[in-house]
Amino acid sequence: MSTSKRGLDPEQVAAYRTDGYVIGDGLLKPDTFLGLKNHFERKLAALPEGERPEDMDVPHFTDPELFRWLLDPDVLDVVESVVGPDIALFTSHFFCKPAGDGKSVPWHTDGYFWREMIEPAGQAMTIWLAIDPSTLENGCMKVIPGSHVDGTESYRRVTDDTSVFDEELDQSRVDASRAIPVQLRPNQFSIHSGALVHSSEVNRSALRRCGFTMRYISTSVRFNHEGVGHKHQIFLARGKDRAGNTYGDPTRAYPELVQTRGMGQRFVGAER
């Protein structure tokens, strides 16, 4: 049996370092991807009445089966290409924009929403795995290449009721003319830095857009157990701890963490 790794190639890693994001093909083996897609469809069908499909944040806290994909060796090989061999799972999120009224995500950096949880927050990285096609028509993510090195962190309130956030980057700090759409086929993926400026628009199309965001940090990144730690939990994914963090058990559920999460914790995964 082959033990070779399937991480990013050197050109992709270089592009990630320069642009703050990169696109890849075939993150999961076909049967493994189909298993994830089918698992998501069952979860979506079981959503409580009135709950938005964009709200499927930290699903691994109540569904340990998701670690089958979150800790998949092919996924962790990609992560290792960026953060090194010592990896912690930070969080996950099914972000599903239904056809016709899928919500928008304003310009932001993920690290802004994680600043009280991990230090340095910008070093977290996201794998955005397409469950459905993600296109301009159904509200794909848009990124501003190179913005992860700008340090732009001036925010203002959002009043748009189509937005999943109530804060956004000050528009005077965002050069939207430089934005690049990240269009993906199912099982294609993008990775982006926690410091990258990105957004996505309302889905008014007839096509649903769902992605599974899997977020990781190096174990040298310090998780704030004393602050919001009682509302969140990280998990050792590969290698060893480097920062004195405490890790959860991926074989058990943590429903108590979901029950104690306030609105300030909602969308800890931010978006894409």
Rank of each mutant, 00 (worst) to 15 (best):
S4H: 09
G248Y: 01
Q171C: 04
R156I: 12
L196T: 05
N138P: 08
L44M: 06
F223C: 03
P133L: 00
P255C: 07
R185A: 11
S205W: 03
R208D: 15
G146V: 12
D19T: 06
T32E: 15
A88S: 15
R156W: 00
P53L: 02
T246R: 15
G7E: 12
G269A: 15
S134E: 05
S134N: 12
Q123H: 13
F61I: 04
S134H: 05
G7M: 08
T62R: 08
K97R: 08
G229F: 01
I87P: 04
G269S: 13
D31K: 05
V149L: 06
G84M: 06
Y155K: 01
C140Q: 14
E201W: 09
I217N: 03
P59L: 03
V13A: 09
L236E: 06
S200M: 05
V158G: 02
V268L: 10
P145M: 11
L169F: 09
S200C: 12
Q171D: 09
S172D: 14
H39N: 08
L257I: 05
G146R: 13
L28I: 11
K97Y: 07
V258H: 00
D55P: 00
K37S: 12
V143K: 13
S163V: 02
S134F: 02
R252W: 01
V79Y: 09
T246S: 14
T260H: 10
C140N: 14
L36R: 10
E119N: 15
Q265F: 04
F95C: 04
S147N: 11
V79L: 07
R42M: 11
D31W: 00
R52S: 12
L236K: 09
C96Y: 12
E271V: 10
G229I: 02
A195C: 03
V13F: 01
S193F: 07
A45I: 01
T126F: 01
R215Y: 00
I131M: 14
